[in-house]
């Protein structure tokens, strides 16, 4: 007896789901700051940690962070990867060119911010490099106002 013939059903369910994720007051303040090309964080009254973007709780101290602080536009590249693929609508595709995503620890911040790194060849990027924020000309209070970081 050979392998049984494969029988399966492919149900197509015509439904469309929309999620409306409310960002909350902390991210709202963060994006408001973008309109003035400022980067805001929140400071923990317990340990002094400065989280960028701002968040409500310090998980270490279990304290509410009420104080908002502006942090510097320059920082250190803590870590990076070089992307060779992209995901478009759930499908992998080769990237047009290798691109760099980095974790940037801004001056006065204790956290790292994920951002594109540009203005440098991927092969030249090194952990520990000093980088600075590059903004779009017209800031509208959206995430992509902060376009990328480039070497100082």
């Amino acid at each position: 007896m050979g392998a049984p013939e494969e029988t399966y059903f492919t149900p197509v369910v015509p439904m469309d789901f929309t999620y409306n994720y409310r960002v909350g007051p902390y991210i709202t303040r963060y994006l408001d700051g973008f309109k003035d090309k400022k980067i805001l964080g929140s400071r923990c009254p317990g340990c002094g940690l400065v989280a960028v973007p701002p968040r409500k709780y310090c998980g270490v101290c279990n304290k509410v962070m009420e104080e908002m602080v502006e942090v510097g536009q320059e920082g250190t590249l803590e870590n990076f990867t070089v992307g060779h693929v992209t995901i478009e609508k759930g499908r992998l595709a080769p990237a047009e060119a290798p691109y760099v995503l980095g974790l940037v620890k801004l001056e006065e911040a204790t956290s790292a911010l994920l951002a594109r790194v540009g203005g440098i060849a991927p092969s030249e990027v090194r952990t520990g490099m000093k980088v600075k924020a590059v903004w779009k000309d017209e800031a509208a209070g959206d995430y992509d106002d902060l376009d990328h970081f480039e070497p100082v």
């Binding site: 991210i27 992307g83 992209t86 478009e88 911010l113 994920l114 995430y143």
Partner: peptide, 13 residues
């Protein structure tokens, strides 16, 4: 989004 990442930015992000 809560971590400040632009999720609409296409490639990589």
């Amino acid at each position: 989004i809560a971590a400040g990442i632009d999720v609409t930015g296409g490639s990589g992000m």
